[in-house]
Amino acid sequence: MTATTVHRSLPRYGGFTLGMIALELRRLIRNKRTVVFSVVMPPAFFLLFGTSADYRTERAGDGNVTGYVLISMAVYGAMLATTSGGAMVSIERAAGWSRQLRLTPLTPAAYVAVKLTLAMIIGLVSVLVVNVTGLFFGADLPTGEWIGCAALAWVCALVFAAFGLFMGYLLPSENVMQILSPALALLSFAGGLFVPLDALGHTFATIAKFTPVYGVGELARYPVTHSGHLWQAVLNVIAWTLVFSAGAMWRFRRDTARV
């Protein structure tokens, strides 16, 4: 009998391995929808809305308006990418894959860690693609500040990885991004990412400060603009991270409870 000769032990880190991340990444790239959302759409939007001749010459903070739009689109791309990364759990739950994984040593916490890592990897790819596009199409920002903006756009997108995870557990849909993508566009308008808040009127601008995209946008642009309410933006990012993480934890506990 084979039983007695097999050495059995549990994996380290609850099954969180580079091998799994590599395989998951391969699958992610195979999904055209994800690629379009996170790698094609954001630079396309940048080219569409940010590269007119006026924008290239007009100044905004330490750079030109094209640079300003570039940062906004990098934030938008990172947001879409990390949300879709987190929302993968919805598809996997619908397919019964999460249940299958419970028949392996992978712990639920390691599973979530893998999803967050993946979300941040595609978020990074999205930010890089948008910024490289900007490099060739007239964005003008001081190098140090440019890198600072890109880094902030990426790091702050963790909020949306948590958001995607929360929605992925909340919505039983196989096409959760069809709901989330318009929702993110709406939140981007509301948070002053596509249109400056000053253009929206006082009441709306006040409400906007409490929406989740506001903080990330303000923070990511801060190295260039040096303007806006820094502490309000930081508070906004922290508060929404807490809200989405708490929501994801709540649904996650419910999902993995052994009834």
Partner: peptide, 12 residues
């Protein structure tokens, strides 16, 4: 275990 149905991802 081999479960009845589901538990597979189409794009692997």
């Amino acid at each position: 275990a081999v479960m009845q149905s589901g538990g597979l991802l189409k794009d692997y």
